Simulated assay, not measured.
Amino acid sequence: MTGERAAELEELGIVWDTADHGFETNLGAARAYYELHGTLAAPRGATILDIAIGQWLTNIRRPGGLGKDQGRARRRAAALAAIVPDWNPGERGWTVDWQRHYAYLAQLLAEGARMTAVVPGVTRHGEDVGRWLATQRRNWDRLNAEQQQRLGELGVKKAPRARRAPAKTAAAFPGAARGQRGLPERP
């Protein structure tokens, strides 16, 4: 068959490679999800345009998920990276959940929210960004350097260490030495 004839058939809707066609359909849904959420860090159950986009993204992030053919896999990865470079957060050393919350925090701040106002209970797309932020600040030393840098660029800082109350001593409780804590002293 000539290239001209093949092009005519393609114009009529003939699909030569169903795998590529399916990928392109899902890629269109990924673009729509990104337009709505500003990230491809979709939860596994997310759907858009009647496509289970969260499950599809989970599947393609797995080793070999973009296909066995290395050339095809590179082209597909490039198409996803053209939507957002962080489409596969595992390659950066953090989870999809972390990426999604980070993106939502960045959006809240870009829309004018003050960092001090992002407290537990502040949500975006049903995700508690305030609680996540408090956890990041508290567990700062567990984050990798790039996570700390990205959060720092948004103005997030490590939570100050909580002051410990001085330990109570036996002398603070009259009669404690005799095992009578809280009981009045014997005359």
Rank of each mutant, 00 (worst) to 15 (best):
T2P: 14
T2W: 11
E4C: 06
E8H: 12
E11K: 15
L12P: 08
G13Q: 08
G13Y: 00
G13R: 12
V15A: 09
W16A: 13
D17T: 11
T18S: 11
A19C: 06
H21Y: 00
T25H: 14
T25Q: 04
A29W: 00
A30M: 02
A30C: 08
R31E: 02
A32Q: 13
Y33E: 10
Y33N: 02
L36I: 07
H37E: 12
H37Y: 11
H37N: 10
G38F: 10
T39R: 09
L40R: 07
L40F: 08
A41P: 01
A42G: 06
P43A: 15
R44M: 08
R44Y: 13
G45D: 15
G45I: 11
A46P: 13
T47H: 13
I48P: 05
I51P: 01
A52Y: 05
A52T: 13
G54K: 14
N59V: 07
N59K: 06
G64K: 01
G67P: 08
G67I: 09
R76E: 13
R76I: 14
A78V: 00
A79L: 10
L80A: 01
V84L: 13
D86Q: 12
W87I: 13
W87Y: 09
P89L: 13
P89R: 12
P89W: 05
G90E: 15
G90N: 13
G90A: 15
E91A: 06
R92I: 12
G93T: 08
W94D: 05
W94R: 09
T95W: 01
T95Y: 05
D97G: 01
D97E: 15
R100G: 04
R100K: 05
Y102F: 15
A103M: 06
A103G: 02
Y104I: 03
A110M: 05
E111I: 04
R114L: 13
M115N: 02
G121I: 03
V122C: 09
G126W: 00
E127A: 00
V129P: 04
G130Y: 05
R131M: 11
R131G: 09
A134P: 08
A134E: 03
N139H: 12
D141H: 08
D141N: 09
L143P: 05
A145T: 03
E146S: 04
R150A: 10
L154P: 08
V156A: 14
K157W: 12
K157G: 10
K157H: 13
K158C: 11
K158Y: 04
R161F: 00
A162F: 12
A165K: 02
P166I: 00
A167C: 00
K168F: 07
T169R: 14
A170H: 01
F173T: 00
P174T: 03
G175S: 09
A176E: 05
G179E: 02
G179R: 11
G182R: 12
L183D: 12
L183S: 13
L183G: 04
P184A: 06
P184V: 11
E185C: 07
E185K: 14
R186Q: 11
P187T: 03
